[in-house]
Design a protein around this nucleic acid. Structure first.
Lengths: 255, 255
DNA sequence: CAAATTGTCCCACTATATGGCGCATTGCGA
DNA sequence: TCGCAATGCGCCATATAGTGGGACAATTTG
């Protein structure tokens, strides 16, 4: 299946790891699956065990080893979200022509990590490094999808403080808001209908890491004329797909 | 450092992963550290990237990839605690001559997973599959070291219900108990002074996994005559060392 | 107890990885 | 803005490093 590019032994070793990850722990099974003779298989197994990539229980079988756990943890830390998401959100901006945002949750707010301006001429006020409420932004709602729904009420209230000027845009009132969120959760993407900035609508989706946790969110935003209801409906799955592509680069694997 | 056992390419590739894990992301640095020429290094890098073991940001550097996160997670699931701990607790039983236990926390209690009987002739009533309170057993206290100290009070109260017969052994009264636990936490191992069974003392320590979480505990138990105070003091670090050896096999790495 | 798997060597053969080199790109510092 | 240093990518003759067959011992299973 792969193009043999001069590292047979390495690739075989990695395939072997996959094999064990798939639950095949006996030498016979592994050798059969890789198509390697017993002696070769054993040789590689020995090396992988010596390095801690596999755990060996003699005459019982092989299991993924402690080294992989360590490396997995290190990998989680090293992951530079912005750099990894970049190519994906660039493609999304290219494909939609609209402005794309990347953000994370920080201290009950959205924190903008990256922004790709759209090609429609209009510029949004948002800026990398900026902070915004969770419940009134597309990014924020996508991030909230990863939290226990019990926290929704608090965050919603936080976004609509008592002294908020009457002319400021705001999310839907509570019972309705919860209803919307439940729908967003089911479909895997969310919307913002001028709830944060008049004239701006957006479609968003959550990004998860290897632990299934929501670690970020992306959104496609544009002015109302470019964002009729039906376009948002078709855009939803697209945004979601991009978010999932980023998630995969972060170690996430589809359910 | 390793004996070249007929898998140079594989070992080099794994060393390369270590290298990147250590934070060396530039080709030049990696090549220098492994002692391989540029072309060979690039070839391996390409293969590792193709398989998802590394993430590549062109002209920027290499990082541990998503595949390692996935494998790390799988490794955590696959880990058969009992089988992995076996050789270690056997060695401990051999070395001390006393009975060794392995247990986990389950629903606010200790659950005994394994037991190696000592060589002193006396047999303990404990049995694999048994349940015991957390606060009155050595295993339980070691497990409690991994919990937020706020939970200690609840668990202590749970172990000493109002209707407990006056002649039943029990842990120290509350203010003192907390004091003891704080000391145990600092030294990394705990004691049980006939608090669960009259005439039985034990020394215990927590076992952690790759996420630093306490997932189990081990203890060395014996009759009082074999367990004078000073022996417990020397045994403590030994038990702790064994627990840490198991932890390492579970992916834990010393702080 | 026998059958099936597994762990461990050994060894001749050649496919496999090596590493030197050149060129086009890209990024960074001056 | 420019030039240098790293990097990505490909080619290729060479011999080294991995291959795979086989024999034997150790271990588990039933």
């Amino acid at each position: 299946m792969p193009q043999a590019t001069g590292t047979q032994t390495l690739l075989r070793g990695l395939a072997l790891l996959d094999c064990v990850a798939a639950g095949i722990g006996d030498v016979k099974g592994i050798a059969a699956r890789l198509g390697t003779p017993r002696s070769t298989t054993n040789r590689m197994l020995a090396s992988l065990v010596a390095q801690g990539y596999l755990h060996h229980i003699p005459y019982k079988g092989y299991l993924l080893g402690p080294k992989l756990i360590q490396l997995g943890m290190k990998a989680l830390e090293q992951r530079p979200l912005v750099a990894i998401a970049r190519p994906h959100i660039e493609a999304l901006a290219q494909g939609t022509g609209d402005t794309v945002h990347l953000g994370v949750e920080d201290n009950g707010e959205v924190f903008y990590l990256d922004k790709i301006s759209g090609t429609r001429g209009l510029e949004m006020r948002s800026r990398t490094g900026q902070r915004m409420p969770l419940a009134s932004t597309g990014l924020g709602k996508a991030l909230m999808l990863g939290m226990p729904s019990a926290r929704w009420a608090v965050l919603h209230a936080l976004t609509c403080p008592p002294g908020l000027p009457a002319d400021r845009p705001r999310p839907a009132e509570w019972p309705l808001f919860e209803e919307q969120m439940t729908r967003f959760l089911a479909q895997g993407w969310a919307m913002d209908l001028e709830e944060n900035e008049l004239g701006i609508r957006c479609v968003s989706a959550p990004v998860r890491d290897g632990r299934e946790q929501v670690v970020a969110a992306i959104s496609v935003a544009s002015a109302v004329p470019y964002m009729p209801e039906d376009r948002m409906t078709t855009l939803g799955p697209v945004v979601r797909a991009t978010a999932e592509a980023i998630s995969r680069d972060l170690g996430w694997s589809a359910p």
